[in-house]
């Protein structure tokens, strides 16, 4: 049977190797190394901070945040969950993971929100940005781990860069969506009163898109958490390393302990950021609902339940 490969075969893998190894790495490695300096600096600061603050203070702060944004049940869950992490001896690793998450979400927001705004204001920009986001979302993360290691080396910062690539799309997409969905008559009203583009952005578009942008931040946060284990493959520490070590040693207990730590952290961070997005609807959810929501990492159902409770 005839196939196109009979005519010619393309050494695509060689081309990529040639491009990355032969040109990108030798010429740009110092530039990439330099680019990771701010990431390393922010990460070092946040990690030092979280490791310095006593466990009880951090737990109390998170419980308070849960209480204010997601209600009493979630606050109790936070207290119990964090105590459990501490008792299984994973507190320092959890704080390292938390520092990584905070750093990558910070950079995602710093890059993603302005990009989303740009995409919302110019169809041409969106036409360029959209396929890039599609690629970022569909390409398996293992594919870019190798060039990242080549360009940045191993360690925490490269892990964060991988996380950044993986977690960036939702915040860009939802910022774009949020701004584009602001009611056209409000935009027209702002225009009719003589706003400049910046005034319109600050006064009307961003405040009205804030809910959607916060939902994007929440999604980005969740994706960042799901990259923890993969980032640990290229030298990032924390709970991901615990899971990987357990995997390497066929240590079911160790891997499970790391996994449970990630899940607890995920639930707490998810509920707090979702609570921020739904601020006006928050009247508090019961412990029963908090436990029920435990089995639903994300989605819209919890929000609906919150409203019913109110």
């Amino acid at each position: 049977m005839f196939s196109p490969a009979d005519i010619a075969t393309l050494p695509f893998d060689d081309w990529v190797n040639g491009f990355v190894r032969g040109w990108l790495v030798p010429n740009f490695r110092p530039a990439f190394r330099a680019a990771q300096v701010p990431i390393s600096a922010v990460l070092a600061w946040t990690e030092a901070f979280f490791l310095f603050v006593p466990m009880l203070v951090t737990t109390a702060a998170f419980a308070l945040a849960s209480w204010l944004t997601a209600g009493r049940g979630m606050a109790i869950f936070t207290l119990v969950g964090f105590a459990f992490i501490d008792m299984i001896g994973l507190w320092p690793q959890t704080m390292t993971t938390l520092a990584m998450i905070v750093t990558s979400v910070l950079f995602c927001a710093l890059v993603g929100i302005p990009t989303g705004i740009l995409a919302a204001r110019s169809d041409r920009a969106w036409a360029v940005i959209r396929p890039v986001l599609d690629v970022m979302q569909t390409i398996p993360s293992f594919v870019y781990l190798v060039p990242i290691v080549m360009l940045f080396g191993v360690g925490m910062a490269p892990g964060i860069i991988a996380t950044f690539i993986f977690a960036l799309p939702p915040i860009v997409r939802l910022t774009n969506l949020g701004i584009r969905n602001v009611r056209a008559d409000l935009i027209e009203a702002a225009e009719a009163f003589g706003s400049t583009r910046w005034q319109m952005l600050w006064d009307v578009q961003l405040p009205l898109a804030m809910r959607t942008i916060m939902a994007g931040l929440n999604q980005t946060l969740m994706l960042a958490l799901s990259m923890v284990v993969i980032a640990a493959l290229i030298g990032a520490g924390g709970l991901g390393l615990v899971v990987n070590t357990g995997l390497g040693r066929m240590d079911v207990g160790g891997a499970t302990a790391g996994g449970v730590g990630i899940v607890i952290l995920a639930i707490v961070l998810d509920r707090i950021t979702q609570g921020l997005a739904e601020r006006s609807d928050v009247r508090g959810i019961s412990l029963r609902q908090a436990l029920a929501n435990l089995f639903r990492l994300r989605g819209t159902a919890p929000a609906a339940e919150t409203q019913r409770a109110a």
């Binding site: 009611r183 409000l186 009203a189």
Partner: peptide, 11 residues
């Protein structure tokens, strides 16, 4: 200045 059919107040 302008007044709109569907009010267009900033919510």
């Amino acid at each position: 200045a302008m007044v709109f059919q569907h009010f267009a107040l900033f919510p």
